[in-house]
Nucleic acid binder design. Structure first.
Lengths: 127, 127
DNA sequence: CAGCATCCTGAGCGATACTG
DNA sequence: CAGTATCGCTCAGGATGCTG
């Protein structure tokens, strides 16, 4: 019975998720879902990201076709990043995951506490 | 207007996703969704995982309350890992994401190829 | 403004060896 | 069987400085 077996994770799938669900991608996608952004707009919108990581993230997302990069040849140059139609299809799955995270965050946190008590997790102090 | 703003990713959410959607977690969850497993059963089911990574993954999942670890004191000891009710709630979001991945994999791959052509990505050869 | 280049640190992973 | 312990490495990621 594989009525229940929708999953089966393989390497390409895993790699894809690593590329589009990684540390900064969700934040970037979130921003771009609202409006196209310039590079430094994104930096300001996501204060914790470094320029290097943002560049890398955008490049990866662009390569995977979920973000489009448009260079406006003014002086100095401007670059507009925008979500693509393909990128928009990613929004729903991400929302579902984030909703799960929000909904069960409390349960998870109490599970963590319980675990940390059972298992000795008094990290330091008391040698 | 935040009718459209369901997201807003923050650090705790990001950390949680890193813990439960990481490299091996999906495969482990997948296995355990079918049946409880012993440690070495999981190793056999997921050949690519090393024992160290599997241990780490299971510990993390256990700490987050999505997997339960039960020690059966026989000789030698047996350990049963099983999905928890909380873990089962994770299944749906994961399925949605995986379905997205399957559905759009072709589009993504062609986007990658297009990008790799535009952008010079003849990695090596030709110095 | 929108990056690229460089250096550097540390978390993570594989391999190996040992234990109750 | 089900791990723990240790070593060595890779490699993503931050910090910093420079460019068209």
């Amino acid at each position: 019975m594989d009525t229940d077996r929708a999953l089966r994770i393989d390497a390409p799938h895993r790699e894809l998720l690593d590329q589009v669900l990684d540390k900064w991608s969700l934040a970037v996608l979130d921003e771009l879902c609202e409006r196209p952004c310039r590079f430094n707009e994104l930096r300001r919108a996501i204060p914790a990201v470094t320029q290097k990581s943002l560049t890398g993230t955008l490049r990866r997302l662009e390569r995977n076709g979920v973000v489009a990069r448009e260079v406006v040849s003014t002086r100095p140059v401007a670059v507009r990043y925008a979500i693509t139609p393909l990128g928009k299809t990613l929004r729903h799955p991400v929302d579902v995951v984030l909703e799960w995270a929000s909904e069960y965050m409390p349960a998870i946190e109490s599970a963590r506490s319980a675990f940390d008590v059972r298992e000795g997790s008094t990290p330091d102090a008391l040698a």
